[in-house]
């Protein structure tokens, strides 16, 4: 299926990637080629087949719900592009 410019704009918005209006058509062409490629799967009969989410043949382990680590906010936030006092900072979201 060919993706139109409106669909690309919707995807880009969901993915939080800025795409300018003059880039939309190039992306539509590009992504459509890949979607067309993967649509080969339409030929496959999957009636009664369970979807596979992972390959492990063992159950996911559970652990005790307890704090086992932490107490070093300065290290955790050490890579933040902007931060203060062991916190991350972002542009103002509440007026």
């Amino acid at each position: 299926m060919a993706l139109d410019q409106a669909t690309v704009a919707r995807i880009a918005n969901l993915a939080r990637i800025k795409v300018t209006d003059d880039e939309l058509q190039a992306w539509a062409t590009d992504l459509s080629a890949i979607i067309t490629f993967v649509e080969q799967l339409d030929e496959v009969n999957v009636d009664g087949v369970e979807p596979m989410t992972g390959v492990g043949d063992f159950p996911l382990p559970l652990r005790v719900d307890a704090v086992t680590d932490g107490g070093y906010a300065e290290i955790v936030t050490g890579n933040a592009p902007e931060g203060a006092l062991g916190f991350y900072t972002v542009p103002k979201v509440v007026e």
Binding site: V44, V46, V49, E50, P51, M52, V55
Partner: peptide, 13 residues
């Protein structure tokens, strides 16, 4: 797309 692909993945396995 996604669920379909996961089913085909089962067939590949």
């Amino acid at each position: 797309y996604y669920i379909k692909a996961q089913k085909v993945r089962s067939l590949i396995l």
